[in-house]
Write a protein that binds this DNA or RNA. Structure first.
Lengths: 125, 125
DNA sequence: ACTTGTGATGTTATCTCATAACACCATTGG
DNA sequence: CCAATGGTGTTATGAGATAACATCACAAGT
């Protein structure tokens, strides 16, 4: 865990919600100086390999992991209203995994993201 | 169903696998002329609304729908080896949907994509 | 027929997201 | 000492997507 990696993780943990890569780039320097893109992307790549950070493909954003061991699979519930995101852990042998098996596929990595409304926004609407 | 929309759908059906937006743009003109990006992106947006095309977020590509009614949810099995993609339809009440419900989220749209190896590539390896 | 509204298209420009390529530096193990 | 490895800094560019505005076709209302 080196300087840039620590800094990116720190920013993600501080945000507590998904952050866009270029927002991380902009906030990278403690003095307000932006980082160069590869600095942040390389840190994200590392943190993702470690399972400390996840990429949320449907919104091209990154979020610090909450729970789960090293290099684990994760699924996300994302509120389109307020941006809140919750990490959940799909059960082994769920219907998607079964469908994959039935089709003869060996799945190594999943992207599972649900968009909708969180409890708070559901009430507010 | 207008000209550009028909053309984009035709390209996707002809490909039979996920195609990148800029590949569609490049192949758009029957005379080899490329389209302008908005032409293709607007067609994709329309086709996606109709449920005739799906976007695969994890690889930023688009694929013609195989089965499923209008505006249905879909999940994908993607072979990282040969690019083959299979559309599957998650059962209602699978573990992800249950997790969402338990968390109080109302999910309107899902992105479910599994990466791995198709039967053919699994044997080949 | 006029005209008004709507939805589609064409076009230019730009924005966002991500990576290639190369130079440099530190650590480690032969 | 000196490769080999892995991390970082920097420049530049590639890839994905959309904003904004002009134009066009068509149907509905008067």
């Amino acid at each position: 865990m080196t300087g840039p990696r620590r800094r990116v993780l720190e920013l993600l943990l501080g945000a507590g919600e998904p952050v866009k890569a270029y927002d991380l780039i902009a906030r990278f320097g403690t003095d307000g100086q932006a980082a160069k893109p590869p600095t942040v992307y390389r840190a994200l790549e590392f943190l993702e390999r470690q399972g400390m950070v996840h990429r949320i493909a449907s919104i091209s954003a990154y979020v610090a992991c909450t729970g789960g061991g090293p290099a684990h699979a994760a699924a996300f519930l994302i509120c389109d209203c307020c941006g809140a995101t919750q990490e959940v852990h799909p059960a082994r042998g769920d219907s998607f995994a079964l469908a994959a098996e039935a089709a003869g596929y060996v799945i190594e990595r999943t992207t599972i993201e649900g968009h909708g409304r969180c409890p708070a926004c559901r009430v507010a609407a």
